[in-house]
Structure formats: C-alpha cells, structure tokens
C-alpha cells in the first residue's frame, strides 16, 4: 500500500518516528511509484512554502529541517522563480483577453436589431386593439413564466450553496479535531522526550548498551568490538532478530571462541525494537573479560526442543 501524502510531508519535515521513516525509505528505494509520489509531494510542500500557505509550525519545521542542504534551498529559489514566470505568463494571457473584450465592446450594436425593436413597437401601437391586447397578455404571461423560472433557479442555487457551506463546516470540524489530536500527540511526545532527557541527565553511566545484528556485524572487524570502560557494572545487549518466526521463549548461551561457556540465560522474550523484534539481555560487566565471544540464540519450539536461530560474534576490549 502506498503511504499517503500526510506521511510523506511528515517525512520531509523530519517529524516521522524512526520506524515509520525506515518503512518509507525502504519503500521508496524499491518502489518507483512511491518515489514519484514523494517527489510530487515535495514540490507541493515547496510551493506551499513559497506561497506562504504553510501553518506557522510547519513553516518553522520546513526552515529548520527541510532547508538543510544547499540543493534544497536551490529548489525553493527555483520554485520562486517559476512562480514569477508563471504569473507573468498569466498576466500576458489576461491582458490579451481584456484587449479582445475591449475591442468587442467598442464595436457599435448592429442597426438591424434597433430597427426590429422599433418595428415591434410600431406594430403593438398600431390601431388593432384586440390583437394588441392579446399580444400584451402573451408578453405579460411570458414575463411571469420567466420570472418564476428564475426564482426557482435562484432557490435551487441557494439550496446548493447551503449544502456546500454545511459540507465546509463539517470538513472544518474534522480538520479542527485532527489538529487537536495532533497537538495532543505532540504534547505527549514532548513530555516523553523531556522525561527521557531528565532521566539521561541524571542517570549514572553504569550500564552500557550494544546492538548486535548478525547480518551487519559479520565479517567487519570494527563493529565486532565492544569497548567496556572501567566503572561499567552492567552491559545490555540488544540482539536484533532476523527470523520472522515467533517462539514462546528464547535461550542465549555465551561462549568464548574456544568453546568455554561463560554465561547463559533462558526464558527470554522477544520485544519490539526499532528494527522489528529483538532480545534484550543484561549481563554483569564482570562476565566479559577481554576475549572473543560467540553468543548463540535459540528458540523453544512446541516440541520442547530448541531451534538454533542466530550467532552473534563479538570481541570485548577493556579500556
């Protein structure tokens, strides 16, 4: 399913959560239609900025998060120039239309038409009373019919306008509700961020966190190394799961490369992480001496046995 414009605008304004951002990036890298839509949405956003149609907060985000590269600022300058060129073109067309209308208005009314009205008047006022009376009645009747028809059309138009207004009111109510929800969401996010900030500024750096991804780390010496400084008491390992299959519980066994088991833990549960699901382990830092390790993760199958899932090789260096 294609992501909607709202999500794309949030992406461009740097408002999406990491998970949503990741989803969209994966999608547009592989899906041309999605990427085309993103480009069109970007143009609309830039045009809205140039036309001053963005709300105050969106304008601020646009300037703060969107206009961060010279290439993007260039796009805005181009949109301004294009707008000016299009306005000039429109002015030229309008001037031509106005000129044509002025030429038409300056031409005299055809004499034939005046003559025909004069003939009609002469005919009505001619000495033929019965015929003239019938004609007057016919004209009055026609006039009433036209008036009646006009009033009906007018009433219908008023009714249509009333319905349109009603739809606009409903639409604005919906928009207002959406804005309120968005505001509430942002307030919640802000409160959570403030809490997180307060927590991080007071917490002592005794626990270190590492993310282990089997596909990412394999064969790359630099990322395999976990550097543990003195004073660290605990180490949290986030083991990103590469399998889609769900297990009731998981078991992790940590061995040195020479095969000595140094630590194990069972009954582990998968929890949501930024990239899908992951197992979170907390080990005492004392367990990890300077050595090379392999952490093996297995899942408890319905038969009561364990399926081997992934290996996470890493080395530990103490600073």
């Amino acid at each position: 399913m294609q992501p909607n414009d709202k999500i794309m605008i949030e992406y461009l304004l740097g408002e999406l959560s990491e998970a949503e951002q990741l989803r969209l990036e994966n999608q547009y890298v592989s899906d041309d239609d999605c990427f085309d839509r993103l480009l069109a949405t970007q143009d609309t956003l830039i045009d809205d900025y140039v036309r001053n149609r963005l709300s105050g907060s969106d304008r601020e985000k646009f300037e703060k998060y969107f206009l961060i590269t010279p290439a993007r600022r260039e796009k805005v300058e181009f949109a301004r120039a294009l707008r000016q060129v299009m306005a000039e073109k429109r002015d030229v067309v309008e001037a031509e239309i106005a000129k044509e209308q002025a030429v038409t208005a300056a031409q005299p009314e055809p004499r034939k038409r005046i003559f025909s009205w004069q003939s009609l008047l002469r005919f009505i006022l001619s000495p033929r009373p019965a015929f003239s009376f019938a004609l007057v009645l016919l004209l009055a009747g026609s006039w009433l019919f036209v008036q009646n028809f006009g009033l009906r059309a007018h009433l219908e138009q008023i009714e249509r306008e009333r319905l349109t207004l009603q739809q606009q009111v409903t639409h604005q109510r919906e928009q207002s509700q959406q804005l309120q929800e968005q505001l509430q969401r942002e307030m919640n996010q802000r409160a959570a961020l403030e809490q997180e900030l307060a927590k991080s500024s007071h917490a002592q750096p005794v626990m270190l966190s590492f993310v282990l991804t089997p596909g990412l780390l394999r064969g790359t010496e630099a990322e395999k190394r976990l550097v543990i400084p003195p004073g660290a008491t605990q180490v949290q390992l986030q083991l990103d799961l590469e399998t889609e299959a769900e297990y009731k519980s998981y078991r992790a066994i940590l061995r040195t490369v020479s095969g000595d088991e140094v630590w194990s833990q069972g009954m582990l549960k998968a929890r949501p992480s930024d990239v899908g699901k992951a197992i979170f382990l907390i080990l005492p830092a004392t367990v990890l001496a300077e050595d090379d390790y392999i952490l093996k993760l297995s899942g408890l199958n319905p038969a009561g046995g364990f399926d081997e899932l992934s290996s996470y090789p890493f080395s530990v260096r103490k600073r």
Partner: peptide, 25 residues
C-alpha cells in the same frame, strides 16, 4: 560486497545507531 539481508534502509539505520553509540562514548 556485504550482503544486505533486509534492505538498504535497515542497513543505514543500523549503521547510524552504531555510529551514534560510538560518538556518545
């Protein structure tokens, strides 16, 4: 020639987080 198992987006995401952890330390 590293095999990107899931997708490029996930790969970038993983690298940026590792980088951030390194920089924090």
């Amino acid at each position: 020639g590293v095999n990107i198992r899931k997708s490029l987006g996930d790969f970038i995401h993983g690298v940026k987080r590792i980088l951030l952890l390194e920089k924090w330390r």
